[in-house]
Design a protein around this nucleic acid. Structure first.
Lengths: 136, 136
DNA sequence: TACGCAATGTTATCTTATAACATGACAGCA
DNA sequence: TGCTGTCATGTTATAAGATAACATTGCGTA
C-alpha cells in the first residue's frame, strides 16, 4: 500500500487507521461506515472518526463529498499539488472520479472576483452515470 | 410579494407555505427551521417539510445547498430558464448569491463528456467571504 | 519530577433525513 | 349514488450524520 505519499508529520494512530480504510476502499465511505470497520481496532465513538477526518481533510489527504456526506482518499500522490478538486459521482455504482481542471478553476476564480467574493474553497460535484455503467 | 412567477400547476397548501417561508427569508433555511416557523400553521412533522421541498426542488423553484444542508428559493423569475446554478456562500453572514454562468456550465459539460460521464446535475458551491463582509 | 499540550476516550445530545403505515380529498366513471 | 384510483397529508418511530462537554492518557521538556 504505497499509493499515497505525503510530506506531512507522521499521522497519529487514529488518523492512520482512518486513512487506511479510505485508501483501500473502492469508493467513498461515510464516517459511520468507517467507524464500524474500525470497531475491531478499538474504535467506539463517532468522534474518533470525525476528529481523524478533520485532520486528514486539513492535510489535503482526504476530500469530503458534500452531496454524499461521505469521504474519499485523495487520488493524487501529493495532495498539496492541486488547488481545487472536482468530483464526478456515479449514481449507479457509486464510483467517484477526482478531476483537476485548470480552466474550471480559473472560471470559478473569475466568477468570484467579478462579485468581490473572497473564495476560500470551491465545491464541485458532478452527478450522473459513469461511462462503465452507461455501457452496461 | 410577487417576486416569483412560475408556470407550474398551482402549489398545494404545504408547498405554498414552505415556499413562502423560503421566499421571505434573507438566506437559506434548514428543513427544521422551516418546520419550526410553520408550527403555527399546523405543521407537526419533518416529513411535511421534506415532501414539500422535494416537489419545489423538482419544479426548480427551490435549490438545495449541499454543503449547508439547507434550502433557498430560486432567485429567477422563471426557474426553468436556467440549467445549472452555482452558489456563492458567505461563511460570515450566511448570505447566498445565485450565479448563472454559461462558460462554467460549458466547461462542466466538456469535462463530463471527456470521460464519457452522463451528467444529470452539477453541484457548484463557492465558499468564502462576500464583498460586504470583506469591506466591513 | 512536574508541567503543558496534543491526542484520545466516553457519554450524551443535537441535527438532518427517511421508513412505514393510516387518513383525507377529490376526480372520473359505472 | 357509490366505487375506485391517485395524490396530498398526517403520524409515529427510527435511521443517519455530527458535535458538545468533560475526563484521561501519553509524552516531551523545563
Amino acid at each position: 500500500m504505497t499509493a499515497h505519499v505525503h510530506n506531512h508529520a507522521a499521522l497519529t494512530k487514529n488518523q492512520a487507521l482512518v486513512f487506511g480504510e479510505l485508501s483501500k476502499a473502492e469508493g467513498p465511505l461515510s464516517a459511520y461506515t468507517i467507524l464500524d470497520q474500525l470497531r475491531s481496532e478499538g474504535f467506539r465513538a463517532p468522534l474518533q472518526v470525525y476528529r481523524a477526518l478533520d485532520k486528514l481533510v486539513e492535510f489535503g489527504m482526504v476530500h469530503r463529498l458534500e452531496s454524499l456526506n461521505a469521504f474519499v482518499a485523495c487520488s493524487h500522490k501529493d495532495c498539496e499539488a492541486h488547488s481545487a478538486a472536482a468530483f464526478a459521482i456515479c449514481e449507479k455504482c457509486g464510483q467517484v472520479t477526482e478531476l483537476s481542471d485548470a480552466k474550471l478553476d480559473d472560471r470559478l476564480r473569475e466568477l468570484a472576483e467579478a462579485t468581490g467574493f473572497a473564495l476560500t474553497k470551491s465545491v464541485v460535484e458532478l452527478r450522473g452515470i459513469c461511462a462503465d455503467c452507461k455501457a452496461a
